[in-house]
Design a protein around this nucleic acid. Sequence first.
DNA 1: TATTGTTATACTCTATAACTATA
DNA 2: TATAGTTATAGAGTATAACAATA
Lengths: 146, 146
Amino acid sequence: MTEATGSAITGAEALVRLSSTVDRVFGDVSREYGLTPQQARLLCILSTGPMGMGDLGRTLNLEKSSLTGLIDRVERRGLAARERDQRDRRACRIGLTEEGKRLGWAVHHEVCGQLERMTAVLDSAQRSALEAAVHRLLAESGAATS
Amino acid sequence: MTEATGSAITGAEALVRLSSTVDRVFGDVSREYGLTPQQARLLCILSTGPMGMGDLGRTLNLEKSSLTGLIDRVERRGLAARERDQRDRRACRIGLTEEGKRLGWAVHHEVCGQLERMTAVLDSAQRSALEAAVHRLLAESGAATS
DNA sequence: TATTGTTATACTCTATAACTATA
DNA sequence: TATAGTTATAGAGTATAACAATA
């Protein structure tokens, strides 16, 4: 996503670079807490409450078998637990354990803290412009809730 | 990174969501071209010319052994090639083959195209504000060249 | 029959530690 | 000794296809 001329990069390229930066922060923080980025992402999403596999797969953009494996691993580590849905006994809901909640909250807090410190270089007009633009983008692109 | 109340999200959360969206676009486009996201990322970075393993590892934020494996796989697929550095014969430089250049360019072009179309929902003031904020962020955070 | 989730299988991605070759 | 890169190993992440259980 670099470009050769040395002149200004496009808006799209800027978004890609920004995304790399965020991914790096998220990855580093996850590691600090002994989690892989995927596991941390899962915990952050489940922080707001239990979810079914279907929603979770759509949110994480994962095939169902990939999600099965991810849940297996966090469950084995005592961070989440499957619970059978009583109305539809094929389905299940995934909820966090106390330790899972603690870690999910900690990662979220630390990631947001680091990113807020990054955005501190923006003046308040720039920051609101960024937030407004992102809101607009997410609203229009049917962004998933994560 | 969801939030429960339905009210406005913070700037940091906006960045995280934006990053997820970009990652999804990048991943989907990579797949279209038969590449993994990591391979596509590598090809995009090498599009501007050959690089040494050291720089590449720092840019991709990978341990050297992880990079060895990634290069092995793209080399096996005929997309890149190692070339021994004549001045320091321990080192090598990685360059793209014609097919690698073609794919790297194609992914870059398609990703940027999709992102530009997404940002088309913004009016021009919002778009410039977003770009200005992102530029400012990248400038201050010592962003890597990818 | 259709849907939810798991199992089987095969790769890819990643890190740590030990190693080789060159400087 | 120090550095650039590889090899060995182990585990995590992912997808496809086939399957089981429930609807």
